Computed example of a mutant assay.
Amino acid sequence: MAEKELKSIITHLQSLKPNTLSTAPSLLSRAKLALLKLDALIPSPKTSPAHLELAQTVLELGAFTSIHLRDTDSFTRYYQYLQPFYSLQTGSKHGRGKKGGNREKVTGLYLLLLLSGGDYAGFHTVLEGLEGSGEESEFIAYPVRLEQALMEGSYDRVWGETKGERVPSEEFGVFSEVLINTIRSEIASCSERAYPSLPISNAKNLLFLDSEGAVVQFAQSRGWVAKDGRIWFPEQEAENAAAERDVVSASGAVIENTLGYARKLETIV
């Protein structure tokens, strides 16, 4: 009975449209209850391969649904639920666990989530745990490219990667806004240390914002002043000037590179 109900719920979940995704959490709760009845929510030696496959399918659907609902905490829980199932694929001598599936996709999305939150230590811990498994997958290569660009301060490369056909799937695109907000914050921090002010027109492209009005709004959120067509950054306190001199120099180099990109955008537009 539980297995039949579970298959029906999976079919329902797979047929959901974007405007009906709000019903997914209740369906997923019912699915997990059915998995508990089948003793399959947490895999054990007694769990049948058929039930393992159903469980993995449900949990992967839960992970992807959480992303579309912008519920990163829920996605993280589903990622953790899935780890024992993925371990069966690589660690079992008897080939237990669902073949194929979405392991690389879920792992890549989790890497992107860590990157968006600035958790570089966690990012590298997960990456090292792959031990060569799936590293050639585009789902894994994509967040790795983004991390390398972020480490180099090549924010224009990151921006380019989050647009168009370079994004591996729709789910990865959902995280673009979070990642760009992280980049925007990094650029803003460098800018206010490196310059007394910037033209609003330059700041628009520099911060990857859609309009000068959005620049003014962003400036206000950070305590900057917008006047006379420029963004003015708060002056550094005198006692911090010497300590930040080296940081300013490094930040200036990053901003100069990104401003160059902004000017190129202006000439294209």
Score class of each variant (00 low, 15 high):
residue 94 H to E: 15
residue 88 L to R: 07
residue 102 N to M: 09
residue 103 R to P: 13
residue 87 S to Q: 10
residue 94 H to Y: 12
residue 117 G to D: 14
residue 125 T to L: 06
residue 122 G to V: 04
residue 100 G to P: 12
residue 121 A to Y: 13
residue 104 E to I: 00
residue 118 G to M: 05
residue 95 G to T: 11
residue 110 Y to M: 01
residue 111 L to V: 14
residue 89 Q to T: 03
residue 125 T to G: 09
residue 118 G to P: 14
residue 115 L to S: 11
residue 85 F to W: 02
residue 106 V to F: 04
residue 124 H to W: 11
residue 112 L to E: 13
residue 93 K to L: 06
residue 126 V to L: 13
residue 95 G to M: 04
residue 126 V to K: 09
residue 123 F to R: 14
residue 106 V to Y: 05
residue 112 L to A: 04
residue 92 S to E: 00
residue 124 H to D: 08
residue 109 L to D: 06
residue 99 K to Y: 08
residue 99 K to I: 12
residue 116 S to P: 15
residue 89 Q to E: 08
residue 126 V to R: 11
residue 100 G to M: 03
residue 111 L to S: 11
residue 103 R to D: 08
residue 100 G to S: 07
residue 112 L to N: 14
residue 109 L to M: 13
residue 117 G to Q: 06
residue 100 G to A: 03
residue 85 F to N: 01
residue 121 A to E: 14
residue 92 S to R: 00
residue 126 V to A: 11
residue 95 G to K: 02
residue 92 S to V: 05
residue 103 R to M: 06
residue 85 F to K: 02
residue 87 S to H: 13
residue 113 L to W: 11
residue 93 K to P: 12
residue 125 T to I: 05
residue 120 Y to V: 13
residue 123 F to C: 15
residue 90 T to N: 02
residue 98 K to W: 00
residue 122 G to N: 10
residue 123 F to W: 14
residue 105 K to C: 11
residue 125 T to E: 12
residue 118 G to W: 10
residue 112 L to H: 11
residue 115 L to A: 12
residue 124 H to R: 07
residue 90 T to S: 04
residue 92 S to C: 02
residue 104 E to H: 06
residue 124 H to G: 03
residue 122 G to L: 08
residue 94 H to F: 10
residue 101 G to Y: 06
residue 99 K to Q: 10
residue 109 L to Y: 15
residue 119 D to G: 15
residue 85 F to Q: 03
residue 110 Y to L: 02
residue 122 G to D: 10
residue 92 S to I: 02
residue 95 G to Q: 03
residue 117 G to M: 08
residue 101 G to L: 09
